[in-house]
């Protein structure tokens, strides 16, 4: 299984672009379907923006590491040292209300769950991991 991406970004929303660009390069290098690559870009936008926005209560710089591997699966790991996100406590998205009452919260995590075959959130002693596995 080849490691394709190894990126370390800081907890700055603008750095998510670095990962997005590497996913585009991966797609071109391995001739992946463009819409699949865009699905991965969307998923990383959701997960990394959640980490950057919610995982840190201080004003310090933190590092978030992204690794991705490819064979017949796309496998990716996001590793950070912020607060653990427990998917059991994720707000349920509002999918059915009328236009006036429709709320937007919880859609990001819900989208990731629906777009990627397998998503796991792990809480290790000194690090938090999000692991993605998707059949190519």
């Amino acid at each position: 299984m080849k490691q394709i991406i190894n990126a370390i970004i800081s907890n700055d929303i603008h750095q998510i672009e670095t990962v997005s660009e590497q996913l585009v390069v991966m797609g071109k290098t391995f001739a992946l379907d463009e819409q699949l690559v865009n699905t991965f870009r969307l998923v990383f936008d959701e997960l990394l923006s959640n980490v950057v926005t919610h995982a840190y209560g201080d004003n310090q710089v933190h590092h978030i590491e992204v690794r991705a591997y490819l064979d017949s699966y796309f496998i990716a790991v996001i590793e950070h040292d912020g607060v653990y996100f427990d998917p059991k406590n994720a707000p349920k998205p509002d999918l059915y209300s009328s236009i006036e009452e429709r709320k937007i919260g919880g859609l990001g995590v819900y989208l990731v769950d629906n777009l990627i075959n397998e998503v796991r959130y792990l809480n290790k002693e000194n690090k938090r991991l999000i692991i993605l596995k998707h059949k190519l």
Binding site: E34, D45, S49, I104, L107
Partner: peptide, 8 residues
């Protein structure tokens, strides 16, 4: 190309 939840 794609729209994430922030765009939705």
């Amino acid at each position: 190309s794609y729209v994430s939840s922030a765009g939705l």
